[in-house]
């Protein structure tokens, strides 16, 4: 297990990412490209959310990072003491509707609000627990550690959603689906939110 506490600043995001990748590769095996890309993408978005939203207008905040690397799963915990948020109040990212006329598809493109979608799509399980009574906000990201050498693709977005309820907090559970580009593999997709 690796633990570290970093200032809640964008400048320390790469250090958080490096800590996770170092922990994952501590056994001497480089994480495969698809896993590396997924971890970088998800942690970057999570870090941005904490710095830019949880700690907006608050100076001197910190983020506690913990990384647990098991034989078949990586678990990353990011804890902050900034403002918590309600994931269900965040508008779901809508990918471009490729069946719509071209101009409509272009005008519907989103310029923001993609962060949670990226996190959910890159991870196998995401649980957010809003802090209360002095406890921190905690985001737990879980990724199954399945080697796929040479694969450079994050999971493409799946648009069937499955609701699951976490024991506490919010669970953003990805679901398996067949990727069009690689039908032989089942990959994680986007999940939905349900509050217990």
């Amino acid at each position: 297990m690796v633990r570290l506490t970093l200032p809640a600043q964008l400048a320390f995001r790469d250090l958080a990412v490096t800590a996770v990748l170092t922990a994952v590769g501590a056994d001497g095996r480089e994480p495969p490209p698809h896993l590396r890309d997924a971890l970088i993408s998800a942690i970057s978005e999570a870090w941005n959310n904490i710095v830019l939203h949880a700690y907006r207008g608050i100076t001197g905040g910190h983020v506690d990072v913990a990384v647990f690397v098991g034989t078949d799963q990586i678990e990353i915990e990011l804890a902050d003491r900034g403002r918590g948020f309600d994931p269900s109040a965040v508008a779901e990212y809508t990918p471009p509707d490729l069946s719509a006329p071209e101009n409509e598809a272009v005008s519907s493109l989103r310029e923001g609000g993609m962060g949670l979608f990226i996190i959910r799509s890159c991870m196998d399980d995401v649980v957010y627990t809003r802090g209360a009574h002095g406890s921190p906000n905690v985001l737990v990201l879980k990724k199954r550690h399945v080697a796929a050498p040479g694969d450079h693709n994050l999971p493409s977005a799946g648009y069937t959603a499955k609701k699951e309820t976490a024991q506490s907090g919010w669970r953003m559970r990805s679901v398996g689906y067949a990727d069009e580009a690689a039908p032989q593999r089942v990959r994680g997709g986007v999940g939905s939110l349900k509050r217990k």
Binding site: P33, H34, D37, I40, S41, Y93, P95, P96, L98, L109, M114, F117, I118, S121, C122, H152, N153, L154, P155, S156, A157, A181
Partner: peptide, 13 residues
Amino acid sequence: RDQPRAIFRLLRL
């Protein structure tokens, strides 16, 4: 290529 390409694919851009 690499991570940027994967993100564009993920977002279907």
